[in-house]
Computed example of a mutant assay.
Amino acid sequence: MRTSTPTTSKRRRLVAAAAALGLAVAALLPVQLASAHESTITASATKPTIVLVHGAWADSSSWAPVTAILQAQGYTVLVPPNALRSLASDSAELSAFIQQATTGPVVLVGHSYGGAVITNAATSDPTVKALVYVDAFAPSAGQSVGEIVAGSTSALNVADPTTIFNFVANPSSPPGDVDVYLKSSTFNTVFAQDLPATVRAVLASGQRPIAVGALSEPSGTPAWATIPSWYVVGTADKVIPPATQLQMAATAGSQVTKVDGSHLSMLSRPLQVANVIVQAAHSIH
């Protein structure tokens, strides 16, 4: 018979101890999960749901840093995809999402074109109690996103759009409509110039296009006329110049916070953006 050496015996004791620890963790895990679930329910019951809406040439991941910050503070955060097909249909889809996927009060947040979407979607959702615009369009009735850009000093307001955009025909779009992408050079120098080059490259590769028709579609009655709003102005924004943002914020009666950020300030200044969203959430009684 083979006898155990001290080293072998020690190894066996460690394995036995590890096995016992594993059993203990397995026994405690359901309790911990139940406790976490109860905490989530409590947070959801006492805090509004925050719905984040992305804009053109981005997707839901553009809100990832802000989402993490808000979730760490106990908020339920939802980031639905924005189809970027037409202002009317995008707004209707968001409204349906809010009605079916949320309960209780909602803070609705929009970035860029997403601001125009929340402006229209919130008018049919009485649960939306606060609006937050982040480097976003907050159009008045009858205004289009394209009209706002054309009346500004935006770097996208150029005589020859082919110098900054790529156009791709989409067979599922209405006749004459096309998808609009930012050229890589435009993305790097205009859209996300304050992010690291490696981050810009990844974001530019995965950008979601917007149908050109959505940019010329007039907005309806603005939700900001009856719902309190907050506005984060990126002072280095080249897509929607700060002066244009401030003008829209003044018209909407928004509480303004300026941040030293590009058009993607929710990625370059996520803490500051999240703080404004929390301010809006705290305003709800």
Rank of each mutant, 00 (worst) to 15 (best):
Y181D: 06
A83N: 12
A16R: 15
A197D: 13
Y133V: 03
P241H: 09
G176D: 04
Y181H: 09
Q272W: 07
A68D: 15
A122T: 01
P81M: 08
E93K: 13
T235R: 03
Q32E: 13
L84C: 10
F97I: 07
P6E: 13
V239H: 00
A150P: 03
A281S: 06
I284H: 00
T153Y: 10
N188C: 06
V107C: 02
V25C: 09
V190T: 14
A223V: 03
P48N: 03
A45W: 02
Q247R: 10
T7N: 15
V259G: 04
A68N: 10
A20Y: 06
A36E: 12
G74W: 05
S219I: 03
L267A: 10
V31Y: 14
K258D: 12
G110D: 03
T42N: 14
F97D: 07
D177E: 15
R2S: 14
G104I: 00
A92Y: 11
L70Y: 00
A159Y: 01
V117Y: 02
L203A: 15
Q255K: 12
S112A: 13
P65A: 02
S89F: 13
F191I: 06
R2F: 15
I118G: 04
L182W: 08
S44D: 13
L131R: 08
G151T: 08
A225E: 11
H285D: 14
V134R: 08
W230I: 00
K47H: 05
L246W: 05
Q73C: 04
A204C: 09
S205M: 15
N120S: 14
V128Y: 05
Q143L: 11
A122G: 00
T226M: 05
L195S: 13
I148L: 14
L108N: 00
V212G: 12
P241N: 07
A101L: 02
K129S: 02
L156T: 03
A64Y: 02
K183E: 07
D177A: 14
T5K: 14
E93I: 10
Y113L: 01
T103I: 03
E38Y: 06
T153Q: 12
L131G: 05
L52Q: 13
T251R: 08
S172R: 15
Y75P: 01
R11C: 08
S140A: 15
V77G: 01
A17S: 13
P6F: 14
L215E: 03
F137D: 02
A243K: 06
D125Y: 00
